[in-house]
Design a protein around this nucleic acid. Sequence first.
DNA 1: CTGAAAGCGCTTACAG
DNA 2: CTGAAAGCGCTTACAG
Lengths: 357, 357
Amino acid sequence: MSEHVHRPSEQSGPSTIVDVAKAAGVSVATVSRALRGLDRVSPQTRARVERIAAELNYVASPTATSLASGRTRIVGVVVPFPARWYFAAMVSAIGRALRERGYQVLLFDLERDVFDTRLRLTGSMLWKRVDGVISINIPMTEAELELLAGLHVPVISLGYRLPGRATVAIDDRAAAGTATEHVLSLGHREVAYIGVGRDGADLIQTPLDRLAGFRAALADRGIPVREDWLLPSDWTAEDARDLARTLLADPDDRPTAVVCGSDEMAFGVFMAALEHGLSVPADLSIVGIDDHYLAEVFSLTTVRQDVEAQGEHAVALLLEELAEPGRATRDRDRILPTELVIRSSTALVGDADTPAS
Amino acid sequence: MSEHVHRPSEQSGPSTIVDVAKAAGVSVATVSRALRGLDRVSPQTRARVERIAAELNYVASPTATSLASGRTRIVGVVVPFPARWYFAAMVSAIGRALRERGYQVLLFDLERDVFDTRLRLTGSMLWKRVDGVISINIPMTEAELELLAGLHVPVISLGYRLPGRATVAIDDRAAAGTATEHVLSLGHREVAYIGVGRDGADLIQTPLDRLAGFRAALADRGIPVREDWLLPSDWTAEDARDLARTLLADPDDRPTAVVCGSDEMAFGVFMAALEHGLSVPADLSIVGIDDHYLAEVFSLTTVRQDVEAQGEHAVALLLEELAEPGRATRDRDRILPTELVIRSSTALVGDADTPAS
DNA sequence: CTGAAAGCGCTTACAG
DNA sequence: CTGAAAGCGCTTACAG
């Protein structure tokens, strides 16, 4: 085994920058410059280095590059419920945008245990590991933000507005207002709302804002709010279904329309209606918010938010901040538009052209 | 600004192992050993080092650790459609299992562009960046596996069986068999199947195996297969709904039960049935496979696969392989069980106790 | 049990 | 335009 065998095409072997430098007859510094496209390298030298690097199957060790440069080209994406559609779609959109720019995503799952895990995150998980962070719908305190600042990792908040910080979000209040006004414009006056935040969720803005949007829409038309029809939920489809079962039980006192804080909850209400033999939209109009990937299949009228665009924007902001610290913080709070998508879960009140039970 | 100010609790400042060593009056080697829990460090020394490290807010730079040790403690998770429930749930499960063991997940999104992207993956994205890879439902060729081997990154295949390699999966054939046998046992004889793989998907095992399971179940009972009721689909809920609209259009020639290759497709069939005024399960039984997170809400009878357990197993296998190369490859092919979950989308054939239209 | 030193594989001023 | 050398912050034999 001591014979020196030449194996140039060694199964993508671990060739280093030194190997390339030797083979090209230049210094490692030159290889580094040539391959990274820096100037001050003669075209001929660059071409040769590139060719030899390709032949040797050279790929710079990201770990060494990171240590030397102080940048990892990795961004941490922090998520509370990675398996839920909204978050999964957002992570996917962010990943796509990041990849195009040569970055990768390290996934941080808060596993519902928001506070504890966030603290652990800060200390040992982010330090020198990511260039920046995008947090999705996570209520951050000022103290935590300062900690992150101390670690020198810029953070973009997506979905959760941080006053004075770089944020990308939709106007939840307006979105809920649009959804509500839609059913009001169809003549509905007996309308319930599912999606009031439960205890402990009072830090989360989305439920608060959407509820506010609902109330405001009613107020705008001078319609009184049935407080007992403002239903607190954990925002799962199951819970919404259970709530709706009760809500719709009494034929003599039930709403003609239900506004849901999310499409998933709307799915639950839809099933509860079917169970009660009510047809949608003849007997009950249902409107959601989000435009969940199954909303079209279930013909759900909803207010669409553009997850893709939000991910894109968050990435753009973060990279601006990375390129020029302080930049993204200047023009903060990018609010992206939402849009009413009318499908067939809503109809004019009392419009029983579909045979009701 | 040239005054030397003592700031021991400097906002989680970048203190290095050298700082700790100096403060503790020992060498960096000792700090390293003490903090990593290696032996050959006196209890007193270790205690002091630990205390001082804590005071200095020291966290080892993962990038430096990786370069020195050759291990990143990061595993790449490769996924074709990260926003779809199955994949998102799997990534989440894997992440949880990994985190418990001190690893993190770097997300690789194939973005449908399977072949191209996989090649790029191999070269520059994985090299020296991850200790191992878990690929979810991705058909890998022998050539690609060899490339990965050349990079020295072990790979566990999840959902896609690699002959002779470490694989974690369910028995798709058996799962579909269970689903099919369930409706057969309810007396159904006119049963359709939605979820035959489309062109280009012939490499993906799941559609093939589930279809085979469907056929086998019918064969076991000597029931002939209606070939025109074996519907190719792209496996989205929309597509399944569209297919079912046609399938269910003719009252004189339509199935009494539909077996779906996935729950998402079952949702689509469910909606098509409603559109046709059919009630489920009185007029049509529907059974899915997966136990999608919305399956319970839609009362869908299905064959459950345990995503959590599969993620766990994949992680366990990978870490075994990391600890002892060659180990995981020995006892390959871990097939996890599936389980029939009967809800109310299936009923005895012709059992019209629910008022049919 | 502990330390000095080499090494991991790059990048980055600094010279020339 | 190019090279020699220091440095990034750890880990790992090797001595003692």
